[in-house]
Design a protein around this nucleic acid. Sequence first.
DNA 1: GGGGCTTATGTTACGGTGTAACAGACCGTT
DNA 2: AACGGTCTGTTACACCGTAACATAAGCCCC
Lengths: 171, 171
Amino acid sequence: MASSASADAFAQVAGPHDHDRCLDAALDRAEQVCGARGARLTPIRRRVLELVWSDHKPVGAYDLLGRLSEEGWGSAPPMVYRALTFLESHGLVHRLASINAFVGCSQGGESHSAQFLICHDCGIAVELHDHRLAHDLKAAADAAGFQLEAPVVEIAGRCRACAAASVPESP
Amino acid sequence: MASSASADAFAQVAGPHDHDRCLDAALDRAEQVCGARGARLTPIRRRVLELVWSDHKPVGAYDLLGRLSEEGWGSAPPMVYRALTFLESHGLVHRLASINAFVGCSQGGESHSAQFLICHDCGIAVELHDHRLAHDLKAAADAAGFQLEAPVVEIAGRCRACAAASVPESP
DNA sequence: GGGGCTTATGTTACGGTGTAACAGACCGTT
DNA sequence: AACGGTCTGTTACACCGTAACATAAGCCCC
């Protein structure tokens, strides 16, 4: 069927869009967050954030490191890991444990929990903030007498566009 | 408060219990599953399964490898990874992506999805099969036009026993 | 029981991911 | 200018995982 243009969470970032706006918004949030709490968004931290936001595909630390070194920064791992740790601690990027990669946080600000949809085909990851899911995670933990601290929810699968592309027209 | 003895998911495995029963049950399930589908539970695969089930704490591949080599098996990583891949493909162990470790599957049989509670204090991990949670994950994916294939749900935190131990009596 | 196929194991070598530890540079304060 | 904190640069290493190839073990068929 030719689905109507109901904008799903993936389509908003997977399709063609003005990505400069994503990037600018992310940098604005970073400025605000850091300014508000006296954290220093130094050149290297800012640059790492820009690189993470170069698209919506999670990027590995060593990929980032490669790009940084091309640009004249050092090439030692701790550099990029420190920047990523800083950004993550301020809720500006997320680490996706299931694929060992980092993605820009679409909310910014306080460190918060989120859920991720990760398409193994196009590589794009989308961040969700599903209250029902968050609530049920908490409820499941409570039921086990468990203090939830850091829930990891990463859903691997295939996004609509990739599913459509893999089945040319109709079977 | 002195909580009553309502057995929560963690208490069942974190407290003192007849762990030989856990181990025996796991091995029985493995025999059944492998027998039913013509898979060979070879000595090394069986031994890896036993080691994973030596307690309820997820174990790293290299820890397993160390123990195997002490027992006269080889000491090359592919050995243990192959056994783990086999066991995981038959739903006998799970890999916890957030901590790069493996834990015995408490259900066995078909490869299935589950959720995990991982206490960062005592190291114990417990497997849940929360239908509501599974349903929510599916619903969240559907809402985004996303085909869910491999959801990863790993909840880090602190179990009741460790929380109680860290606060001696009452504040 | 030998030939040939499939599966499993043993081994080498390497790539990817992440961190400890220390030295030096930068920055604001006094 | 001296100081103390933060940030950066660097070395070295630990841990996690896999590709590729050689050998051995099980299986089936004749």
